[in-house]
Amino acid sequence: MTHDDRGLKGLNNPDYPIPEELQSTIAVTSLDRIYNWTRAKSMWPLLFGLACCAIEMIATAASRYDLSRFGMEVMRASPRQADLLIVSGTVTKKMIVPIVRIYNQMPEPKYVLAMGACASGGGPFKEGYNVVSGIDTFIPVDVYVPGCPPTPQALMHGFLTLQKKIESQSLRTVPWYRSGESEAIPVPILGPDIIDPRQADLIRRHAEQAAASRDTTTPAPTEA
């Protein structure tokens, strides 16, 4: 990112020439651009740490890496005040329930950054019985940052990538200005294993199949 991008000059539309002496006070731009510019430069992440990656997230916010250079240092503890959910660590089946609730509580526009191997796809603990294979199996993700854990530089690159994504959006197409309410993600249920309500039909079908095969293969259910 060059310095110009960050100031008022970055907003200017080159099709409309502005006299040199007015360039720091006047900008001729589109609504989309100024809307995205303001949003991208003042993201408020949720103050929410999950596991090891959270330590690197804190290090990123600390003085050496200095996250505030990108307008992202205002971490809010309440999901109602946040517009970026950084999933910083392993998502367990027990934890996915509160995470989906938190995501649903965040006001739109909202973004999700999956930080590290665990949040992106399960990571080293994927084979375990209590780990979700990636947060994107439940909530939509905008940016994935690889690493275990990602270095602070990698996380910052993830933030900049997110800013680029925001700057490419348009008021006409973003989902949160369409008519009607946006649908909440159904909250998973803790059963004998985690149950995603969206998979209810699939689970039902498999249970029927299992029951049918039980009837044909083992006539006497007492035999273990």
Partner: peptide, 12 residues
């Protein structure tokens, strides 16, 4: 397609 398994006799 997920890291889940349900008991054979499980019904929602």
């Amino acid at each position: 397609g997920r890291n889940v398994s349900y008991p054979d006799d499980f019904t929602l």
